[in-house]
């Protein structure tokens, strides 16, 4: 246990990812679903950077940067959608958003 292991980071990332997936699937509040998506994206980022360090390339960091940028865009649009949903139904409960029911 002297050196850092690659797997440490990957397992941590796996925990974050699984937690995020649970959050996306199980939470009723749209804002929390967005937060869970952030968890997933961060897990991916840790993976990217860890593998970048592992292989000695800078590409991992660069792509992590791109992911951050995309995440910022996603949160912006996502929250705008949540606001629209709220404005239309006075609630952000995803259980009530069921127009797809035939």
């Amino acid at each position: 246990m002297d050196d850092l292991m690659l797997n440490q980071f990957l397992l941590l990332s796996a925990i974050l990812f699984s937690t995020g997936v649970y959050g996306v699937l199980a939470k009723r509040n749209a804002v929390i679903v967005l937060m869970s998506i952030e968890l997933i994206l961060n897990a991916v980022n840790i993976n990217l950077v860890a593998f970048g360090a592992h292989n000695g390339t800078i590409a991992g960091s660069v792509f992590a940067l791109f992911v951050i940028a995309v995440a910022a865009a996603e949160v912006g649009v996502g929250l705008a959608m949540v606001l629209v949903i709220y404005r239309n139904r006075k609630s952000v409960d995803l259980d009530e958003v069921a127009q797809m029911k035939g």
Binding site: V33, D95, M100
Partner: peptide, 11 residues
């Protein structure tokens, strides 16, 4: 099962 809830379908 056909609830119209996207989240459930996703689950």
């Amino acid at each position: 099962m056909q609830t119209g809830k996207v989240q459930q379908y996703g689950a």
